[in-house]
Amino acid sequence: MTASTMTPTAVKEPTAARRLLTAPAAGPFAALVLASVFFSLSTDQFLSGGNFSLILQQVMVVGTLAIGQTLIILTAGIDLACGAIMAFGGILLAKLAVNSGVPPVLAILLAIAVCGGFGLVNGLLVRLVPLPPFIVTLGMLNIAFALTHIYSDEQTVTGLPGPLTALGKTFPLGRTDVTYGSLLTVGLFLVFAYALNGTAWGRHVYALGNSAESARLSGIRVTRLTIGIYTVAGLVYGVAALLLVSRTGVGDPQAGQTENLDSITAVVLGGTSLFGGRGTVLGTFVGVLIVGVFRNGLQLMGVSSVYQTLVTGVLVILAVTVDQLSRKGTR
């Protein structure tokens, strides 16, 4: 395209304020702020650096899974297998390092690569057969779950070497101790926020979610893109496996059984549409924090955990309702 010299009379850009108000994550962010204010007023312990650090630690595993989940949901897919893949990665990581004598760093890289392999297989099945993502990942959920239990022989792996738990260590940030894992999670969110918003790859992810056929006709290599997205999501689940192991200090075959739905919850709460093509990874971060803040705040108020789950359920339905109504408004 060559630039012509005509003046762009027809162009007026929206103001910063308007863009902020119409940003996809504006609603979730407002909900997060309101919830935080509410809990700050309701309990004394909520508003403290230490408590926020704790919330971050509590959400970093599901938050990291939710990054991969966001990528896949943006393509109008869904990943039911993320938690199970992570659990397998965690056990693999722990057993390689503890039982097989693989150097810890190599064990970490291998486990992340294997998780990426699961994602790759998902992507190949979704794109090349092609099969619905729901079916592929439902199958992979069971496969990864079974493999985890077969490989671990139902045994929890303990006595992990230092590098595997290093991300659970803390460093002081002001007067608060923050874990390296929290920092890694936040870093990953920023990296993917940039990749989705600032690069052509990100635009292609959105285009794919809008319509795979339109994306193809626009010259996007849809097959490569789809398989790549699932593979990247798998690699991210591998990082989540490392975070999980470093947080709990063990390789646990029972881990990760509810994280698939929890990650979907976070993505939806963050304003990403399950129909694909709309949403942001920073919105997902907000969604993850909403879940974390509600769980933490209700706990501090002495509300039993069943009610925390109840509130989460209400929030999900509310979030999708708002999404539907706002989409009606724009069409």
């Binding site: 959105y206 809008n210 006709l217 626009s218």
Partner: peptide, 25 residues
């Protein structure tokens, strides 16, 4: 080719659609 079913991405902005698949870095 301008396809009958409009090969545009509805949730993306006009400029992004103009350059879809041919982004400038």
């Amino acid at each position: 080719t301008v396809y009958q079913d409009l090969a545009v991405a509805p949730s993306m902005d006009i400029a992004a659609n103009m350059f879809l698949g041919r982004e400038i870095r």
